[in-house]
């Protein structure tokens, strides 16, 4: 009787979990299927799961109408630039807060972390004004007047988040949780502080760096509102802005739209599939602690 009860419950669990999975995965599958379906079939009446005929026309149209390679390259530059800066600055700061003794260490740490509590809507306009007023670039004079500063440059997208509080927070956890006995020995042998950081500690936190890199890259790749605000020439646009414009210009071209959507999310989905365990665990552990 008990065994039977347990079996019924297990079966119910699989049914529920499968139903939820259908809801979460179906839109992606449907996007793939629509992207390879001929246009006549997409807008025909009746529902067919698998396409009657396969075609790459939608991709051809998408690439013809929209400079996707350029947009992909822009997103790659923005994502990689932001990620590298966060890795370098986040590990330097995280290491200092976890391993070095200096005055006001705790206070300064919490000050930097407090940036997480400031909603984006508050910083949005000031960021624009600050980047607009950076002296001696973009036609600006010494006082930051006359030109546009860093607006419409990749720096405008990268700089505000170059040392994200999340990176500092996560790397402090990482450096704090490794064994420091080695380093003390090296320190007594007269090794310099930077050497201790770079040669002894940094290799120990490689897994943490990898998770941080993936999460930062994903966030940068998917960023939309801020690039939309500060970039205003077409060939500077990242893929998300390009896709949004495409969607507004081609309201009913569902096939090419789905092709474009896939182009915009395939890189991050591939990264996710390969590193999913790290991503899921890293994302939550940092938030929970």
């Amino acid at each position: 009787m008990r065994v039977k009860h347990a079996r019924v419950r297990a079966a119910a669990w699989y049914v529920a979990a499968t139903l939820i999975s259908v809801v979460t995965v179906f839109p992606l599958v449907w996007t793939v299927l629509t992207s390879v379906r001929p246009e006549s079939e997409i807008l025909s009446a009746g529902f067919r799961f698998l396409p009657r005929a396969l075609t790459l026309d939608n991709y051809r149209i998408a690439f013809r109408e929209v400079p996707f390679p350029r947009y992909l390259l822009n997103s790659l530059i923005l994502g990689t630039g932001g990620t590298l800066l966060n890795l370098v600055l986040g590990s330097l700061a995280g290491y200092a807060f976890a391993r070095l003794a200096f005055r006001f260490r705790e206070q300064l740490f919490w000050l930097l972390i407090s940036a997480m509590m400031v909603p984006g809507v508050i910083t949005m306009i000031p960021w624009f004004l600050i980047l607009h007023g950076v002296p001696l670039v973009g036609g600006n004079d010494l006082l930051g007047r006359g030109g546009v500063g860093l607006i419409n440059t990749f720096w405008a997208v990268i700089l505000p988040g170059a040392a994200g509080p999340f990176a500092t927070f996560m790397m402090r956890q990482q450096f704090g949780s490794v064994d420091g006995a080695f380093a003390e020995a090296a320190r007594l042998d007269g090794a310099g502080e930077f050497r201790i950081f770079a040669r002894i500690y940094l290799p120990l936190v490689k897994p943490g760096l990898a998770v941080l890199a993936i999460l930062t890259f994903q966030a940068g790749w998917n960023n939309f509102l801020w690039p939309l605000i500060v970039l205003n020439t077409a060939d500077m646009m990242p893929i998300q802005v390009g896709l949004a414009v495409f969607r507004q210009q081609y309201e009913t071209a569902y096939g090419p739209l789905m092709a474009g959507t896939l182009i915009a999310c395939v890189p991050v989905i591939l990264i996710f599939v390969f590193f999913q365990r790290w991503i899921i665990e890293g994302a939550t552990s940092a938030a929970i602690k």
Binding site: T24, Q240, A264
Partner: peptide, 12 residues
């Protein structure tokens, strides 16, 4: 499966 929608951007 449950997590995968998070990976795609809001725009996508």
């Amino acid at each position: 499966f449950f997590y995968i929608p998070v990976v795609a951007s809001t725009v996508a």
